[in-house]
Simulated assay, not measured.
Amino acid sequence: MSVLKNRGKKNSNKQTGFGTNASNYGGRFINKDGSANVKKIGLPFFERISWYHTMLNISGFKFITIIFVFYLLVNFAFACIYTLIGVQYLQGIKPNSFIEDFGQAFFFSTQTFTTVGYGHISPVGFLASFTASVEALFGLLTFAIATGLFYGRFSKPKAHIMFSENAVIAPFQGVKALMLRITPHKNTSLIDAEAKVNLGMTVKENGVEVNKFFNLDIEYDKINTLTLSWTIVHPITEDSPLYGFTEDDFKKNEGEIIVFIKAFDEMYSNTVAIKSSYMFSEVIYGAKFVQMFDDEDDTVTVLDLSKLNAYQKINF
């Protein structure tokens, strides 16, 4: 990040966990999806990866694909073992061409792995029987793990909250204000929602560039229920580190606005949290958000999620 003026000292936050050495930090602090913009090295790959966390956090399509590919590979491996032992030791298979023999061994493997066991093919001899028993045990353990992962993915508390793509600078009660918007996008019930906003930037102290973080005061840091959209407002007063910033300042300088949201989900009966960030390049100067909700025949309030990122330019 480039050097900005050292403002808002009394709001400085030294407990962010991001570190202060600006020369050793690259890019943004928090990615748009809320993950930390950090790449870890120095240990073997398998020691740096938690497979449980990975399997819980990847997309549903990737999760199902991994399960399916693993299923095929395991059965392919056991089919190779049965073929090497000899399909004549699988009673019910009449040896024919290699392709047919391997195909029959593969489907016997799937029946053993899933413990279905249709019965028209059965192992004969020690090696075939031992392999089948090992595969059956491996299948039981594998499906137990897969079941746990499925349960973990469905039961894990998750904040179904969306952030606007951009923040805006708009007039607010006689001053300028930084505004961003969030909204729940699922049929969840969130109460006691809290917001915290920090500003990260690089300043010069004693001729050395350091990362500084500032707490940004917001109009409301807590609301009772989050059912519609919530526009989080930081009035840019004289106490704000953004005080005096012009449109050119946002274009020429680099900074990052980090947003933390926490709420209580009544369905999970648990606290959920989510975070995101906005670079200065993602702040629209002289704009206001378009209202997302309206009434329908005076009977129900309609929340239009497609308008989350909608804004209109204004002059001030």
Rank of each mutant, 00 (worst) to 15 (best):
F63R: 05
E135W: 04
F108K: 04
G174I: 06
F76G: 10
K40N: 07
K40A: 09
A22K: 05
D298L: 14
D304N: 15
D33E: 07
E296Q: 13
A136S: 13
Y118D: 06
F68R: 02
K40Y: 11
F78M: 11
E194F: 04
Q312N: 14
K94L: 08
Y89G: 02
I161G: 01
I93P: 02
L190A: 01
T20D: 09
F108R: 04
F18Q: 08
L140Y: 12
K32I: 13
N198V: 12
S122A: 13
I257V: 14
F280M: 05
Q291V: 10
I257E: 02
D265N: 14
I232S: 03
V124T: 12
A195K: 10
T237E: 06
F172I: 00
D33R: 05
T20P: 00
F113C: 00
T142H: 01
G125Q: 07
F78L: 05
T110F: 07
F154G: 00
I314L: 08
G42W: 11
K313A: 13
F106S: 04
L242T: 05
H120L: 07
E135D: 07
Y151S: 09
V175S: 08
H120M: 09
K39R: 11
V197A: 01
A22H: 05
K9N: 13
T301D: 01
L72Y: 05
D304P: 02
T142Y: 07
G255V: 04
I236W: 04
Y268W: 11
I81A: 13
R28E: 07
